[in-house]
Design a protein around this nucleic acid. Sequence first.
DNA 1: GCAATTCCTACTGAATCAGTATGAGTTCCA
DNA 2: TGGAACTCATACTGATTCAGTAGGAATTGC
Lengths: 150, 150
Amino acid sequence: MKLSSRTEYAVRAMAELAEMHGGGPISLREIAARQDIPEKYLEQLFRQLRKAELISGLRGAQGGYSLAREPCEITVGDIMRAVDGPIAVCSCAAEGKGDADCERKSHCAAHPVWAKLQDGIVSILDSTTLYDMLAKTATQDMQGNRGGGS
Amino acid sequence: MKLSSRTEYAVRAMAELAEMHGGGPISLREIAARQDIPEKYLEQLFRQLRKAELISGLRGAQGGYSLAREPCEITVGDIMRAVDGPIAVCSCAAEGKGDADCERKSHCAAHPVWAKLQDGIVSILDSTTLYDMLAKTATQDMQGNRGGGS
DNA sequence: GCAATTCCTACTGAATCAGTATGAGTTCCA
DNA sequence: TGGAACTCATACTGATTCAGTAGGAATTGC
């Protein structure tokens, strides 16, 4: 039940791109530095994000990456699937898997729970866009909970 | 974002115990056989479940395990925490961790999303009891989709 | 043409996970 | 009273996954 570092990194990097959205492309190096992510590792993730058509890369000097769609059109779920594959709490409750491998299924007491969990997770991830994330962070900053109440 | 086999096994085994609840203790061997779980592995899990006071063990011949509380008093979340420790989608959104390790937190765009996800997961797991699971399985059986599609 | 950048494949070390092995302690029952 | 049927406890192992690194080819702006 834990996020991979791929997902954590990718989401943070994408948020960074979203914040800069509209200007020119931003280099991998810059994003890695600002978010404190190993550069070469992030490079791998970006390749996957590009293949998933969430970002587009521009080669050569002054090149870099930028979002391939508007921030409000990219969900956390999209990012996660791009770098970690389909979301699946277990093999018998995975996306796009109607009747797969679990021969137990029809009489398994656990199955409905996993299905519900899977559903809950996916619906949160798919309903949160990069736009939402930035908006929330801004709000959070405005509310300014520093030194907050113990 | 995946359940461990510990959790999957433990929940299934607990459901088995719940189904038998009220009779005498059931031996590990029997549960393992019925749920097709490696016996020695399940033994480990049961020790943890016992320490968490979800089940109680009776030693000696004719011994075995039984639920330490009513099925409606044991949640999937309880079971999961017993065998896998605290539920945490990431280190900066974990249970019982007010202000821990993530120095980024206050300005991290991802944090609110993980917090929401964590919350959603925990609330599903903590609101589903063994009793609910059995009830659902029964319903499922009554709807009886056996021999189903193609 | 050269510097900055993306693109691509392969490797590696460490950590986690699933499962085993072995044996001690307890209790019932013949 | 002894042994069979159990739980209880610790330590080990092999495999897989994960996080991160290395090295270099291709492309583009200046």
